[in-house]
Amino acid sequence: MKKYAAIAAFGAAALTLAGCSSDGGTDGATDGATAAAGETEAAAAGDAGDMVVGFAQVGAESGWRTANTNDIQRAFSDAGIELKFSDAQQKQENQIKAIRSYIQQGVDIISFSPVVETGWDAVLNEAKAAGIPVILTDRSVDSEDDSLYESFLGSDFVLEGNKAGEWVVNEYADADSVKIIQLEGTTGAAPAIDRAEGFIDIIGADPKFEIVASQTGDFTRAGGKEVTEALLKSNPDVDLIYAHNDDMGLGAIEAIEAAGLEPGVDIKIVTVDAVHDGMQALADGKINFIVECSPLLGDQLVEIATAVYNGETVDKRIVTEETTFTQDEAIAALPERAY
């Protein structure tokens, strides 16, 4: 008896799941109603209203990534385009599965942020064979065959490292020796590798710059704090901390203050990202320089997707417009910052 009741209960649950509206699962406005509204606006928005885009996001591993997701979802819902969204929990195999599923579902455009550069040829060839164009965001793939994707929209991490290095060179133009601690991002992650490379490319030429220690803070505040705390004790006369993202820099600030020093004055800090908390610290003078890495790709992505859908050609490589910030620039820009 219990057994049949349990089967019935599960059946009911399954049907409820099948019947319930998609509102229960979303945080953005990407439900069916918007797609319908989009259709009535189809005449005004070109063919965009019927378009279905499949987006395979890396994950939600940081505030930056969530801002990226929110912006993309907002942009597509503003444009009235249906967006199928999946989260890969930072696993490449999950992204491959999602893309294959989108091919199966017959979406019009596939877009994704590759969690790693290598290994996409097989699934991208399947998309090509199915006639579905692919747009890359945030990071690129290293396929030799670049007909596998229409366009790559994203930052250049090496360039970000370069910009950080250039500021350091200018700032310490008159100094004799500069001791630097580098707070690396997650070992093996492309942004970490590239930002380190870009930085070294610029400062490596001059022997007065010495990276006395370089450890990973895993892109988190706690990591940045723990590493800085330990390294400050064994390297008390360090001049500068270069962190691969704002969060690690914020953690470093706490460690510096706990050691009785003044961040931004006794020890200068350079970071990448320009999230709100980082910009605030910059405005307060605790961080000295931030290189922006913008997650707000939504509108540009919608533009490219619509163009591709309508058969227009688009640029292969579109670099996100990013800038850098000093303290005054941060104070001026802070009120407008969206994330």
Partner: peptide
């Protein structure tokens, strides 16, 4: 996982 992908609207946290 396939069902989640077809659903297409689950955010990262709702997926988990």
């Amino acid at each position: 996982q396939t069902m989640i992908s077809y659903e297409g609207t689950l955010s990262s946290w709702w997926t988990r």
